[in-house]
C-alpha cells in the first residue's frame, strides 16, 4: 500500500499498527480523530512530504523515496531520528530489561543461564548506547553545521575548511555488530532459555513477551537504518557535493 495524503490516518493505522510509534514521533497520539493525513498534518503543522516519506519507508520495505520528496530540511530528519533514539533507549530497552528481571525473579535468582543472558543484554545495551551517542554527538552536529554552512556559502561565499575533511560515507557502514548481537540474543532465548521456575505458566508467558519485544525492537531498528540509508545519507551526500564543488 502506498500511503498518500488523501487517506484517513485511522485507515492507515488499521492497516499497519506498527506505525503508531512512528506517528507518536510527530506528536500525534492515538485518539487523533477522523481526519485525512493532509488535514491532520495541516492542523498540527507537520511537514506532510516528510511525514509521508517516513510512513512509507517504514511501512513498505520496497518503498523508495522519490527525489522531490527529499526537499524538506535535513534538520527535520534529524529531529525525527533523535526522537526515535530516545524511544529506544527510554522505552523499549527498559521494557526488555524489566521482562528479564521478572524472569530472574521468577526463577529464584540462582539461574545461571538467565544471568548470563541478562549480562549479555546489558553489554548489548552499552554498545547500542555508544552507537547512538556517536550519532548524536558527532554525526548529527556535523550534518547540521553543514546545512548552516551551505546557507552561508550561498550568501557570502565563506567556506569552513574543517567541514571539508569529514564525509557522511565514513559513517554509513557502522551498524553491523549491534545488529548481530540482537540476533544472538533472540537465538539464546529461542534455543537455550531454561525453564526453571515454580510458576512455569507465568515464566513461559513472560519469555514470550520478551521474545516479542526483541523482534519488535529489531524491526524498529531495521526501519530506522533504512530511513538513514534512504533519506538521510543521500540527502547529506547531495549537500556535500554541493558544498565542496565550485569553491
Amino acid at each position: 500500500m502506498l500511503i498518500v495524503g488523501e487517506m484517513k490516518l485511522a485507515d492507515v493505522i488499521h492497516h499497519d499498527y506498527n506505525l503508531v510509534p512512528v506517528i507518536n514521533r510527530f506528536d500525534i497520539s492515538l485518539g487523533f480523530g477522523d481526519g485525512t493525513i493532509k488535514e491532520i498534518c495541516e492542523e498540527r503543522n507537520v511537514n506532510i512530504e516528510f511525514f509521508l516519506s517516513i510512513l512509507n519507508t517504514f511501512h513498505d520495505v520496497q518503498y523508495f523515496p522519490k527525489d522531490y520528496l527529499k526537499s524538506f530540511p535535513v534538520s527535520l530528519i534529524i529531529n525525527y531520528l533523535r526522537k526515535a533514539h530516545s524511544y529506544y533507549s527510554d522505552e523499549k530497552i527498559p521494557e526488555i530489561k524489566l521482562l528479564i528481571s521478572k524472569l530472574i525473579r521468577l526463577s529464584g535468582k540462582k539461574n545461571k543461564t538467565l544471568n548470563l543472558i541478562s549480562n549479555f543484554f546489558n553489554d548489548y545495551c552499552k554498545e547500542f548506547a555508544t552507537h547512538l551517542m556517536r550519532e548524536e554527538t558527532v554525526v548529527y552536529p556535523y550534518i547540521l553545521s553543514l546545512e548552516k554552512a551551505l546557507a552561508e556559502k550561498n550568501e557570502n561565499g565563506i567556506v569552513d575548511t574543517e567541514l571539508m575533511k569529514y564525509s557522511i560515507t565514513t559513517y554509513e557502514a557502522d551498524h553491523e555488530d549491534v545488529e548481530e548481537k540482537l540476533f544472538d540474543m533472540k537465538s539464546l532465548i529461542i534455543k537455550y532459555l531454561p525453564l526453571e521456575s515454580s510458576d512455569n505458566l507465568m515464566f513461559e508467558e513472560i519469555s514470550y513477551s520478551l521474545l516479542r519485544e526483541l523482534f519488535v525492537l529489531e524491526k524498529e531498528l531495521n526501519e530506522h537504518s533504512r530511513i538513514e540509508d534512504l533519506i538521510l545519507v543521500p540527502k547529506v551526500e547531495g549537500m556535500e557535493k554541493h558544498y565542496k564543488s565550485d569553491r
Binding site: 549479555f120 553489554d123 555488530d177 548481530e180 548481537k181 540476533f183 544472538d184 540474543m185 537465538s187 539464546l188 529461542i190 534455543k191
Partner: peptide, 8 residues
C-alpha cells in the same frame, strides 16, 4: 548455534 558474535 545461530550465534554470530563472540560475546554470544
Amino acid at each position: 548455534l545461530s550465534i554470530k558474535t563472540v560475546s554470544g
